[in-house]
Design a protein around this nucleic acid. Structure first.
Length: 429
RNA sequence: GGUGGGGUACCGAAGCGGCUAAACGGGGCAGACUGUAAAUCUGCUGGCCUCCGGCCUACGUAGGUUCGAAUCCUACCCCCACCA
């Protein structure tokens, strides 16, 4: 027991420890610095908010005076982790994986410090898995595991029970991940693996391998699954997955995602997704309880996380757009230039001005054309349901004509669907 | 390779010759109420049109039987279980 708050204590106080292997807590009680890693699957070009928890865990590790390793699964990505998946996965091509690895690598780099005493490392397991021979693998890794052990893993057992089928390829995944841990242990003196709760089986397999093959101890900590009070899957909005890449999810939408957090989740998210000290969070929550309508907790959450992921510039942009869209100022009071600047982060389309000349387009055609509605039928239904606004005013007639005169300064139309979904149409020659 | 079960809309799941663009549940979208929240209630949820009406595509794929098929027949593809 030390008086200093350790990495482990901090995680625990924030509700971020779902399960930990024996000895994990004590590992941090000593004052020495350790090395820990987390693996990231290159299933997409970008990481999404779901990965934020592990990323921040690595950053916390570093801030607590330890050395983090972010491992990108360029090798394991070729196989596909069955954990938490109900059916066999589609294999990615080598090119896809490489492309994804590059994207993820760049993102991870933003959260970690690669300089100094506790410099972070960014590795790709393809470096060792790519050249690993089957014979070598079976002798060095396979020998240490029994089928019984592997079948007992929850991820495997569940798949078999649900009748989802499990190929040898996916079945073997845990061995590869175990091998990763062994390699990192050998080469970088890595003693800890962190991960999502679905990684428990893979992590313990690694610890097992290190113990059997090297006689060394290693530890694992898994983070809880992020849940939402309303039961919706975390990280999804009507617009789909919330990515960390600003090309895929604009800072504005990213900010909005956090701003729309359920009251019941706010405190938990502040603890999990920001570095704010716990006593400060307690203060924020007190204010929030006094005046929930101000949504102070959500604002702070959105501010902190957006800054973390998109920097001060991204945050400033997000706040500017938010102020305009939800600040109560009529859209038509803005100049076209202001609108275009402010709406840079809002989805937009270009349209030839000529199409709005003369008779123009009907509201329905405009909505379908710009993609605000998936079809004319949907556009019609939306309008009849009262969910469509043109330049801030509700459209009531599906056949209402929209002409150049309706555009602000003859250049810009602002379409809104529902309360939160905005779309800008730029008129071009 | 054998035997049995199965492939229906975003997902789950009914239907098993016409009344089916397809019950029901979930999800999603919109509206009301609000705090850009939750809960609740309401509407919508294949496409197109000249939209209180009409047309076109759809129930694994391709053919066939029938006035008429998601529903019957044939072949093929895929999935699952058990056996070999």
């Amino acid at each position: 027991m030390t008086s200093k708050t350790t990495f482990f204590d901090d995680l625990e106080a924030r509700g971020l420890i779902y399960e930990a292997t024996e000895g994990a807590r004590e590992l941090f009680a000593e004052s020495r610095s350790i090395t820990g890693y987390i693996g990231f699957d290159p299933t997409a070009r970008s990481l999404h908010v779901g990965s934020l928890l592990p990323i921040l865990a690595l950053a916390r590790l570093q801030r607590a005076g330890h050395r983090p390793i972010a491992l990108v699964g360029g090798g394991t990505g070729m196989i596909g982790d069955p954990s938490g998946k109900t059916r066999e996965r589609q294999l990615l091509t080598r090119e896809q994986v490489e492309e994804n690895v590059e994207g993820i690598r760049a993102q991870l780099a933003r959260f970690l410090d690669f300089e100094g005493e506790f410099a972070a490392r960014l590795l790709d397991n393809h470096d060792w898995l790519g050249s690993l021979g089957v014979i070598e693998f079976l002798r060095d890794v396979g020998k240490h595991f029994t089928i019984n052990y592997m079948l007992a893993k929850e991820s495997v057992a569940r798949r078999l029970q649900d009748g989802g089928g499990l190929s040898v390829t996916e079945f073997s995944y845990m061995l590869l991940q175990a091998y990763d841990f062994l390699v990192l242990s050998d080469r970088h003196d890595c003693v800890l693996q962190l991960g999502g709760s679905d990684q428990w089986g893979n992590i313990t397999a690694g610890i097992e391998l290190i113990r059997r093959a090297r006689g060394r101890a290693a530890y694992g900590i898994v983070l809880p699954l992020v849940t939402t009070a309303s039961g919706v899957k975390f990280g999804k909005t009507e617009a789909g997955t919330v990515w960390l890449d600003s090309e895929l999810t604009s800072p504005y939408r990213f900010y909005q995602f956090w701003l729309n957090t359920d009251d019941r989740d706010a405190e938990h998210y502040l603890k999990a997704f920001t570095f704010l000290p716990l006593d400060e969070i307690a203060g924020i929550m007190e204010d929030h309880a006094r005046n929930p309508a101000a949504r102070g907790a959500q604002r702070r959450l959105a501010t902190e996380v957006t800054r973390l992921v998109h920097g001060d510039d991204g945050l400033a942009r997000a706040e500017r757009v938010t102020a305009v869209l939800f600040g109560g100022r009529p859209v038509r009071d803005l100049s076209a230039a202001e609108l275009l600047d402010v709406f840079a982060d809002v989805p937009s389309t270009e349209m030839a001005r000529a199409r709005l000349e003369g008779e123009g387009l009907s509201a329905v055609e405009l909505l379908a054309d710009t993609g605000v509605a998936a079809s004319k039928g949907e556009a019609r239904r939306l309008i009849l349901g009262g969910g469509v606004y043109l330049n801030g005013e509700r459209v009531t007639d599906p056949d209402q004509r929209v002409r150049t005169e309706d555009a602000i300064e003859g250049k810009v139309l602002v379409l809104r669907k529902g309360k939160k979904s905005n779309h800008v149409v730029r008129l071009v020659a």
